[in-house]
Design a protein around this nucleic acid. Structure first.
Lengths: 321, 321
DNA sequence: CTGAAAGCGCTAACAC
DNA sequence: GTGTTAGCGCTTTCAG
């Protein structure tokens, strides 16, 4: 900036004014400055600007895994909202590792992101306390923060969605329904199991429940075990997109039970799989908009919108037992 | 840092030494400093550090769309390599818009990212010249830069893969093969068409070619038109993952032509679709590793690795005409 | 082993 | 309209 100033024969501050589009610069002077900028290939050093102004125009996004279509859709929506506010996105995947989550969040904070959007992997977020007190707003998405952290959250109606799918299967004549969910320590998995169990009432049978990460081997083993029972399940409700896909693979080629899944997935329509669909893009959008409201000064109490989920019948959930 | 220094009764520089793990601080002093840091909830201001040191420990990634599984997988791989080098990732989607690509790249540069990984949308990258000259390394992925920009590239064997698929269909008795590709202005689309055309030789018939973005309507219309010809195609080769999925939807329910696609996709195995698969994660990894080699001082001539693609027979491409 | 001083490139606050 | 000055929080350099 100093070089540009001397090249244009003006003071440094005038260059600053031109670069920032501030008013009060004579058009001719401004043109001279712009010419010098082009000639020298100057571009403003954003780090210095941030240091001085305190705002980075960057938000941090921590998700579980960008390669998962659910989180990819969510990311895209967050990015769009951020772009509309002239903000960039610093993002990272926690791989469901609480330590990595913490590291990413704290690194983002050290870089002075203006705000955070977090899909938490861990259960303890006391490490965020100083940052929140320092005024960095955070929105938790898909899963709530640990106890004692009172921030905005955007969650889906997990229990309600699971109950919806379960009642749908019962209405189609099923009374033996299996549930394949992710590790019960994961909030969404636990809530969906809860919804399933509540909706099923006395029909609930814990031998028809398996809560494990979605590896093909374990899913196949669980299904084999259940299908070999005296009264095998006539339907399977899978607790997330990954598990649905894995279960379909495990059941491929056999006239198996009816399958209904939580989360929609690519090609579910061609495969005719009935699902309870959430809208990851909407989740990301709502979270980002909430964050930007906080950034523009909204200091009201923490908000906790719950997004609806919808049943999409495609055939697999309407099969009779 | 000043506050921590006075709280610990040391000079600012000593705090700096402790924070950065520099040697030459008495253990007892260091402990006192660390105690003060915890008490005050201090965390280093990364912007100031960057301003002083010149390196941001951040790389910029511009892709077409994070919500596309291909780019999501690529992003994840880039992120892993970056994390292994202690680097964060600033990322953005260009939505196939050259102007947005330029804006993202230049914004990243203004933030002084250490390096860039770009899936270009545009054909003119002269705007990058000053940045490259200033020493910011860039790696182009999936598509090459416009003329006059001599940077590292990581491309797939697009023409070879297309030829492989085409010969596979010919070997299975097909002589009327259609090609559905993306806009011919997109590098990969053009190269794949070239491979298809070359492999087909005198069997090539331009009435069986349609180069358009993958919207369901246009794909359906193109297929309808081709299938109504005197000598309709007995096989369709689709030029990317999106087009494959769209074509499968358009053909759903009819005993249509054999379908082979470029790019693998989720559930291709269950649907039994033969594809020519690239490995997006590998592409991201190779690109990121190349970038970090540049960042650690490798100033050799630009490299241009070409990643192989592989035919995965799953049934759809092995159907007789 | 520890500290003082200079300055990274910019913007805010105030002159002129 | 334009210029001067101070200082954001840190690292670098050099001096004890």
């Amino acid at each position: 900036m100093k070089d540009v100033a001397s090249a244009a024969g003006v003071a440094l501050k005038t260059v600053s004014r031109v670069v920032n589009g501030e008013p009060g610069v004579h058009p001719a002077t401004a043109d001279r400055v712009r010419a010098a900028i082009d000639r020298l290939g100057y571009s403003r050093n954003e780090s210095a600007r941030v240091l001085r102004r305190g705002r980075t125009a960057t938000i941090g996004l921590v998700i579980e895994d960008v390669a998962d279509p659910f989180y990819a859709g969510l990311s895209r929506a967050v990015e769009s909202v951020a772009a509309a506010h002239g903000c960039l996105l610093l993002s990272g995947s926690s791989s469901e590792d609480p330590e990595r989550e913490r590291e990413l969040v704290l690194t983002f904070c050290a870089r002075r992101v203006d705000g955070l959007i977090v899909v938490p992997a861990g259960e303890d977020h006391s490490y965020l306390r100083p940052e929140l007190d320092a005024g960095t707003p955070a929105v938790f998405v898909d899963r709530p923060p640990g106890p004692g952290i009172d921030v905005d959250t955007v969650l889906a109606d997990n229990a309600g969605g699971a109950a919806l799918a379960t009642r749908h299967l019962v209405a189609h004549g099923h009374s033996r329904i299996a549930f394949l969910g992710d590790e019960p320590s994961i909030f969404t998995a636990a809530r969906r199991l809860h919804g399933f169990r509540t909706a099923l009432g006395h029909l609930y049978d814990e031998r028809l429940v398996c809560m494990r990460s979605p590896a093909l081997d374990t899913v196949r083993a669980a299904l084999d075990r259940m299908l070999a029972l005296d009264r095998p399940p006539t339907a399977v409700f899978t607790g997330n997109g990954r598990l649905t896909v894995t279960a379909l693979r495990a059941l491929a080629g056999r006239r198996g039970p009816a399958v209904v899944g939580f989360d929609d997935f690519e090609l579910s329509d061609l495969l005719g799989v009935t699902v309870v669909a959430q809208d990851p893009a909407r989740m990301g959008r709502v979270a980002a908009e909430l964050l930007f409201r906080r950034l523009s000064g909204d200091t009201g109490p923490a908000e906790h919108p719950v997004l609806p989920v919808g049943l999409v019948p495609r055939g697999s959930g309407e099969l009779p037992p």
